[in-house]
Design a protein around this nucleic acid. Structure first.
Length: 554
RNA sequence: GCGCCUGUAGCUCAGUUGGAUAGAGCAACGGACUUCUAAUCCGUAGGUCGCAGGUUCGAAUCCUGCCAGGCGUACCA
C-alpha cells in the first residue's frame, strides 16, 4: 500500500516537473507514514515539506501542485488533502482494504518477514553465565532477549547461530572446585572454615553429596590440587548440564556451547597474544603484558597477562572474538548484563586491532531485573545463596508468562518482575490478554466448523462484507505488522513485537465486543472468519518470535 | 572525577528514527454477560515529556549545560 502511494507521488512529481510546474527534477526519497490522528487520513507524507528548499517554493504550494498531478488512483484513494505546514494526507477507499488481507494467508508463516539479512551469517551469543551456579532471573531476561533477537534476525533472512560461551577456565572455576571440595570433606567429618569468597548456595552441598556417592572417600587421599580440580570439573559439568536443561525448559536451545578452556587447550590464546606482540599492539610493562586498547578509543590500556603469568579474562575474550569472525560471521552480537558495559570499549578495541570493522561487533546491554512478590523486593544475593533461580520462576509462573514479561520493556530499562502479577490472569498480566485472542478465535473457528460453515477462502463477495469501521480498523492493524517486524529486527528490539501484539489484542477484543463473527448472512460470516483467521495467524506469528506459545483453548 | 543507561499521567511503561491535538495498561469512578470464551469491552478523569538554553517551517525525539537515580570505573570475573 505504502509502495503504491509512493509510486503515485513519484509519478505526480515527475509529471509536474515535465509540465513545468516544479522547477527542479531532483526529488528526495518519499517517506510515507501512518498518522497518529485518525482524522489525518490513512497515510501521510511530508514529501512537499522536505522539497521546499530544493524547489524554492512554499511547502503547501508544492503539495497543491503534486495533488493536481496525481492520476489514476480513484479506486484506491478516496480523498487527498493538504494539512498543517504542508502534509499531504491520503484517505483510502474503505473497500480497498479488505483485498489486502489476502497477503496474510498467502505468506503463511512468513507474513511480516522482510528480507534484510539476505542469508548473511550472524551470531548471537547470550546468557553465557559462568558455570558456578544455576541461572537466576537476570539470566532469564538475557535468555529471553537473546533468543527473541535471534528469532527476529532469522525471520528477516539472516543465517543465525546461537552460542553460549562457557567460562570454564580461570580462578572462578577453582573457587567452585574449592567450594565443593570443602563441603565434600565436611561430609567425611573433616570440617574446616568455609571462606566467604566460596559459593554458599545449597547446590554446592548437593554437588558434594553427589561427589561422595560417586567417589566415596577417594578424593581424601588425593593431593590438594588434583582433588580440587576433580571437584571443579565435575561441578562445572553438572552445573552446565543443569543450565542447559533450565534453558530448554525455558524454550531456548543453543546451536553451540563454546568452551573457554578449549581456546587455551588448542593454543589459540597464546597464538593470539604472540601475533599482537609481534606487531606491537601488546607490549610489556611493569612485569605484565598490556594491550594498547587506548589507541582504539578505550580510556586506557588493558592487561592481558598478569605479573604472575596468568592470563586475564580479556586475553581469552580477544582470541574468542577473533575466532568468531574467522568463522565467517558478518555480524557478531553479544548480549551482556548492563553491569559489563565498561567492557565494551576494550572489546571493540580488540576487534578493531584484529583488523575487523568494530561496527560488525555489537553489544546489547540488558538492564537488571528487580524480582518482587506482591510489590515487595525478593532478596537476590548470589553469594549468600538465597536467590530465586530461573527454574523457580518458570515453575511458579510458567514459561510463557516469564518470557513475555521479560520482553515487555526495552532492554535498556530495568525491569520489575512481580511473581504475583505474573500469575494473575487479568489485564495486569498482558501475556494472557494476547494469548486469549488466539484462544477466542480458535473457539469461533471450532464453532463455525460445527455449524458447517465452509472455511473462509477470501472470495470477493465475502471480503466485500468487511465494510464496517471495526472491520477496517482491524485490517489496518494487521497490515502494519511487517513494519513492526522490520523495526524490531533492525534495531534488535523485540519489545516492539510485544507492544504490537498487545495493541492488536486490544483491537481484536474491542472488535469482538462490537461485531459478531458468525451471523446469519453467510458471506458476512465467511468474510469475518477470514479476517479473524488472519488475526489469529498474526498473533501466533508474533508470539512465536517472542518464544511464547499460542494456545487453542484457555 | 570520568564513562554508560534512565528520567513522559498517582504507578508501570510505549512513542513508527524530527511531524500535526503526546498514547496504553494499572489504580479511581460509572456502565455492559440469555448472544462465537467477561482471562473481555465501553465511558469519565488524569501531562510544564527532569530543568534551562540552542538548532529549524516543526523537538518527548538532535546539540550544549545543569539536576536526580542506577550501573561501571582492578594485574576480579
Amino acid at each position: 500500500m505504502k509502495d503504491r502511494i509512493r509510486g503515485l507521488l513519484a509519478d505526480a512529481a515527475r509529471r509536474a516537473h515535465t509540465a513545468g510546474a516544479l522547477p527542479s527534477g531532483d526529488f528526495p526519497d518519499i517517506d510515507i507514514e501512518v498518522p497518529k490522528v485518525e482524522a489525518h487520513g490513512d497515510f501521510a507524507t511530508n514529501f512537499a515539506m522536505i522539497m521546499a528548499k530544493i524547489q524554492r517554493m512554499a511547502p503547501r504550494r508544492i503539495a497543491e501542485i503534486i495533488i493536481a498531478h496525481l492520476d489514476g488512483a480513484a479506486d484506491l484513494i478516496a480523498k487527498t488533502e493538504i494539512a498543517g505546514p504542508g502534509f499531504i494526507n491520503f484517505h483510502i477507499q474503505p473497500a480497498a482494504w479488505a483485498p489486502l488481507l489476502k497477503a496474510i494467508p498467502a505468506a503463511g508463516e512468513r507474513y511480516g518477514a522482510v528480507d534484510i539479512g539476505c542469508g548473511r551469517k550472524v551470531q548471537v551469543e547470550f546468557v553465557s553465565s559462568n558455570p558456578t551456579g544455576p541461572l537466576h532471573v537476570g539470566h532469564g531476561r538475557g535468555a529471553a532477549v537473546g533468543d527473541a533477537v535471534a528469532n527476529l534476525l532469522a525471520f528477516c533472512g539472516y543465517d543465525v547461530q546461537r552460542e553460549y560461551y562457557i567460562n570454564d577456565s580461570g580462578r572462578q572455576i577453582r573457587t567452585l572446585g574449592h567450594s565443593v571440595l570443602l563441603r565434600y570433606r565436611a561430609l567425611h567429618g573433616r570440617h574446616a572454615d568455609f571462606p566467604e569468597d566460596c559459593y554458599q548456595g545449597d547446590y554446592i552441598r548437593d554437588l558434594a553429596r553427589e561427589m561422595k556417592s560417586r567417589e566415596g572417600d577417594r578424593l581424601l587421599s588425593l593431593d590438594e590440587d588434583e582433588a580440587l580440580m576433580t571437584c571443579a570439573r565435575f561441578a562445572a559439568e553438572r552445573i552446565i548440564a543443569g543450565i542447559r536443561d533450565d534453558l530448554l525448559d525455558f524454550g531456548v536451545a543453543f546451536d553451540r556451547w563454546f568452551s573457554e578452556q578449549s581456546l587455551y587447550d588448542d593454543g589459540r590464546v597464546a597464538r593470539s597474544i604472540e601475533a599482537f606482540r609481534d606487531n606491537g599492539q601488546i607490549y610489556e610493562s611493569e612485569g605484565a603484558l598490556w594491550f594498547n586498547t587506548s589507541q582504539y578509543g578505550d580510556e586506557k590500556d588493558r592487561v592481558v597477562v598478569r605479573g604472575n603469568g596468568r592470563t586475564t579474562y580479556f586475553a581469552s575474550d580477544i582470541a574468542y572474538h577473533q575466532e568468531k569472525f574467522e568463522r565467517g560471521f558478518e555480524r557478531v552480537i553479544d548480549v551482556w548484563g548492563a553491569d559489563h558495559h565498561g567492557y565494551i570499549a576494550r572489546m571493540k578495541a580488540s576487534v578493531a586491532a584484529s583488523g575487523i570493522d568494530p561496527e560488525r561487533f555489537e553489544v546489547i546491554l540488558v538492564q537488571l531485573v528487580n524480582l518482587l512478590r506482591a510489590g515487595a523486593p525478593v532478596a537476590m544475593s548470589t553469594r549468600a545463596g538465597a536467590f530465586v533461580t530461573l527454574q523457580d520462576v518458570v515453575r511458579e509462573v510458567g514459561r510463557d508468562a516469564a518470557r513475555f514479561i521479560f520482553l515487555t520493556r526495552h532492554y535498556a530499562n530495568t525491569l520489575d518482575f512481580d511473581l504475583e502479577v505474573a500469575k494473575q490472569k487479568s489485564n495486569d498480566n498482558p501475556v494472557y490478554y494476547v494469548q486469549y485472542v488466539h484462544a477466542r478465535i480458535a473457539s469461533i473457528r471450532r464453532k463455525a466448523a460445527e455449524n458447517g460453515i465452509a472455511a473462509a477462502d477470501g472470495a470477493d463477495e465475502c471480503l466485500a462484507r468487511l465494510d464496517t469501521a471495526e472491520d477496517v480498523a482491524l485490517i489496518k492493524h494487521l497490515l502494519r505488522y511487517p513494519d513492526a517486524v522490520l523495526a524490531a529486527a533492525r534495531q534488535m528490539e523485540p519489545h516492539r513485537i510485544t507492544f504490537y501484539l498487545m495493541n492488536l489484542a486490544g483491537a481484536f477484543h474491542s472488535y469482538y465486543n462490537k461485531q459478531r463473527v458468525l451471523v446469519e448472512d453467510p458471506d458476512t460470516s465467511r468474510g469475518r472468519l477470514y479476517l479473524v483467521a488472519a488475526v489469529q495467524a498474526v498473533i501466533r506469528n508474533g508470539l512465536t518470535l517472542l518464544g511464547v506459545s499460542a494456545p487453542e483453548r484457555m
